[in-house]
Design a protein around this nucleic acid. Structure first.
Lengths: 357, 357
DNA sequence: TTGTAGGCGTTATCAA
DNA sequence: TTGATAACGCCTACAA
């Protein structure tokens, strides 16, 4: 058989299964069987092969294996931006879970840009990943791409954001509930003019959080303060602009639907010279270990990031292993963490003071 | 030629270069030439091939290409933990730069654990990545692994931490200088009992920062307060323990050498009931957009994270493209950002007061 | 300019 | 139990 003169590369080829077979005086089949721990290779040959492997430092070329097996043991992960602190924990969980199951993760940042996302999807598919975890950019999926997924039979699980024209597994948090928790908390404290800094309304997360907010206002017989609604894009700058726009209109409280926008919002408050919670109350989305260390301590809606990543990976791997049941939605429950930025302590103290007079 | 009956898989094969060749009534060579935009294919055939590609939605299998070309257009990235806020920006930069040059990034978390790191290195090598960016775990590299790199001719660039027995390119920040800047600033304000919460001293970063601190104490004729030195591991909990250990000993100031440990340290201060900067001054390492929004505003040594990732990728890609010059070290300069936690404002006010009496 | 066929390093089928 | 050999899908030296 081939393996003749090494025409192309001058650098010595890495030792292949042929070299091992030759060294151990067996066929490549036997080497392959030993490497893959298959039953039924005699002890004698197994020993010889193992010795040859050790001697030659043989390591199977996973590229060739992937090509032959039609399986790469690799998943693609597309998030909008790993530098957004919402994602690192999720990606960490994905990588952990994938690795434990023998998979690696290819990381992509879409910047919530449909074109970039489309390019990444094609790339991942060309690289023949076994599945994709997708934090979908705003907007629908192109028909061509949808066809690609089904044609190539590559499972995909949606992370956080659903996609109108793609019925795939979805792993998300209960955003409407989260926003409702936050809004209800503010209403309970006694605020009536409660503003909202939402995410983009062309995706499910942004809409759900807004919905939870609106529903709760209604439940509390609070009018929707149209001049206190702001649509951001989950980035710092939009939070900053939201602050500049909303704070002069004197909201009593505001719900900011992610951490980065809260950061921008607080910057704006600094510039304007308004303090939280004295001049306005705030509840933020997403919790981090450091928010309880600095003032104002943010009252937040905690999103179980690591669990999100775990669930997404678990779901994807099940699909890869052959689960063909219909698409599921896994919804994790967020939690309200009351601290200081909502002015809870403040109000209760104020409320007590009149009694003291 | 082969491509006979489809023995193995029942699911329809993805369209391959052969299908395109057949559809366009040309040879695979011609298709390959068109796909790779090689000179010298007649306009007529080019048209036919392109039509066939479009009709069949052909996308080259990058796995097969990698195997044939002996190049995967993929780099491996091993960091201790993407959930540590120091890394997301770096990884983002790496992914951006890699993508721009036509490479993808495989992400791995070593948890600063030598065994885990070793497993990842073997995995990446087996996957035939074209190069590796390594934020080395503490401890030397095993001889076997060093041999692997040279044998397989896979370039590697070290990120932040050097490695005693591996002469490879290194991209890092000037940690000694950074720590010196911080310490000098504290000394200038007038503190004399300055503590240190260092990282692990078995790696270069931890040692350098400690060295910068010690050197600067000496330059300022300050004794080393042995009871105010604490060796942490860059995680929150070690910062917390550092706080519990050091704060009761009443340091005037403390240099905490990363953000997560600062978070733990502040938690400890909260529990003990000591305030920053009133009861102790603090300078932290690493800066984030949100540190200026919450109190106390941290005075920090800013590390150019994105630039670090860019430089590491650039260096690696040059090696991959064939640069064989001797190993280089790229050192980026950190910067002092004076805010409130160092007590600068406080002290200057106090300093003025006596004059007012 | 285009085609033929061998090689990349595995896996897996089918004989022996 | 083992071996020979055809895939996997692409690239490319060499021939035509």
């Amino acid at each position: 058989m081939p393996r003749t003169s090494r025409t192309r590369s001058e650098s010595p080829r890495a030792t292949s299964i042929y070299d091992v077979a030759q060294e151990a005086r067996v066929s490549v089949f036997t080497v392959s069987a030993v490497v893959n721990k298959k039953e039924g290779v005699s002890a004698a040959l197994t020993r010889r092969v193992e010795a040859a492997i050790a001697k030659l430092h043989y390591r199977p070329n996973l590229l060739a294996r992937s090509l032959a097996r039609q399986k790469t043991q690799t998943i693609g992960v597309i998030v909008s931006d790993i530098a957004n602190p919402f994602f690192p924990d999720i990606v960490r969980a994905i990588e952990d879970s994938a690795q434990n199951a023998g998979y690696s993760a290819l990381l992509c940042n879409s910047d919530d840009n449909a074109e970039k996302e489309a390019r990444y999807i094609e790339l991942l598919l060309s690289k023949r990943v076994d599945g994709i975890i997708l934090n979908k950019a705003s907007g629908p999926l192109s028909a061509a791409h949808r066809k690609l997924f089904t044609d190539q039979n590559v499972p995909i699980v949606l992370l956080m954001r659903s996609c109108a024209n793609l019925k795939a597994d979805l792993v998300r948090t209960d955003d409407e509930h989260g926003a409702a928790l936050a809004t209800a908390h503010l209403a309970r404290i006694g605020y009536r003019r409660i503003g909202l800094v939402s995410g983009p309304l062309d995706n499910s997360t942004g809409r759900s959080r807004r919905q939870g907010y609106l529903k709760t206002l209604e439940e509390n017989n609070l009018a929707v303060p149209e001049e206190l609604l702001f649509e951001g894009d989950y980035r710092i700058d939009s939070g900053f602009r939201a602050g500049l726009a909303l704070l002069p209109r004197r909201p009593e409280a505001v719900l900011v639907t992610n951490y980065l926008m809260t950061v921008g919002f607080m910057k704006a408050a600094d510039e304007i010279g308004m303090r939280c919670p004295e001049d306005f109350a705030l509840v933020s989305f997403d919790d981090f270990p450091w928010v309880s260390c600095f003032r104002p301590r943010l009252t937040t809606i905690e999103l179980p990031k690591y669990e999100l990543g775990e669930a997404a990976t678990r779901t994807l791997l099940e699909r890869i292993e052959g689960n063909t049941a219909r698409a599921t939605t896994t919804t994790l429950t967020p939690q309200l963490r009351v601290r200081e930025s909502c002015g809870f302590m403040l109000r209760t103290r104020e409320a007590r003071e009149p009694l003291l007079i």
